[in-house]
Nucleic acid binder design. Structure first.
Lengths: 139, 139
DNA sequence: CTAAAAAAAGATAAAAAAGTCTTTATATCT
DNA sequence: AGATATAAAGACTTTTTTATCTTTTTTTAG
């Protein structure tokens, strides 16, 4: 789900230069994923204002300048919550600094790196390489 | 599932010093997890020789010296396959060095770190701190 | 040799996640 | 104002994952 979310958002970011709107069908095709399912995910993100949407003819999804500054971390948080950023590597609820699981300290570093990576991955910065087909979004 | 697997294996490693056997009930209690479910996971690992088992009275699970050298990475591979070590960050099948997804290169580093971490986490090295209650396995 | 203890295996059930279909609300254009 | 295009919402279905229950097989102890 989260992967769909990120891919859809990147697709919108790329296609909705200068306020243009992208329909859900185009998005679904563009990232080769189930239309209604992706629609739901985007509705979620739209409620939380990570993406904008307009109904009716010529409607669709787009990013305003603010939402282009959102990162993959923001998307992940909304879709999956922050268990990835917070949770214990062995799934233990009581795991903490003072009451750690065996891999607590090692896992902490990895979580931190993942977090950093996703926080630095702003939506706005991927359009160019997608445009030039240096990267892609279809499965 | 994978978390149960690792926790069960750590528990066995700790309890089965000098060839002693640990029953599935004790394991399930020890890691506070569903007995039959954990049993199945261990049967899997047992078939692949990551843990030893003996049926009948006084039977149970234990680790021989070889299996204490296995790492969490080995467990993960058997339980979840190697998608974690190989898979694309956005779930794209066609993603590769030459045909990368937008986060391919960043994600590669993280995957490598996770792999290293899990490979270095040998089952045999956690017993002492568990014994001293410096770390724990219950949820 | 028998009884009991334990893992192994198989069948079933419950819960969660993923996906689809249908209807509704809203905006746009003529 | 009416028709149409589109996202939004809700109901439903399917698949996958997780968990439980039952039966079987193996081993040991007496």
């Amino acid at each position: 789900t989260c992967e769909y979310a990120i891919r859809a958002m990147l697709f919108i970011a790329q296609k909705s230069k200068d306020g243009e709107r992208v329909g859900i069908k185009e998005i679904a095709k563009g990232i080769d994923s189930p239309e209604h399912f992706v629609a739901k995910i985007l509705q979620d993100l739209s409620r939380k204002n990570l993406v904008q949407s307009v109904k009716g003819p010529n409607g669709g999804f787009y990013h305003d300048k603010t939402s282009l500054k959102y990162s993959m971390a923001d998307i992940v948080k909304i879709v999956d919550g922050d268990k990835i950023f917070e949770g214990c590597g062995l799934g233990l609820r009581q795991c903490s600094e003072t009451h750690p699981c065996p891999i607590h300290h090692e896992f902490k570093k990895i979580r931190r790196d993942i977090k950093r990576m996703l926080e630095n991955a702003k939506l706005g910065t991927f359009s160019e390489e997608l445009e030039k087909q240096l990267t892609f979004l279809k499965r």
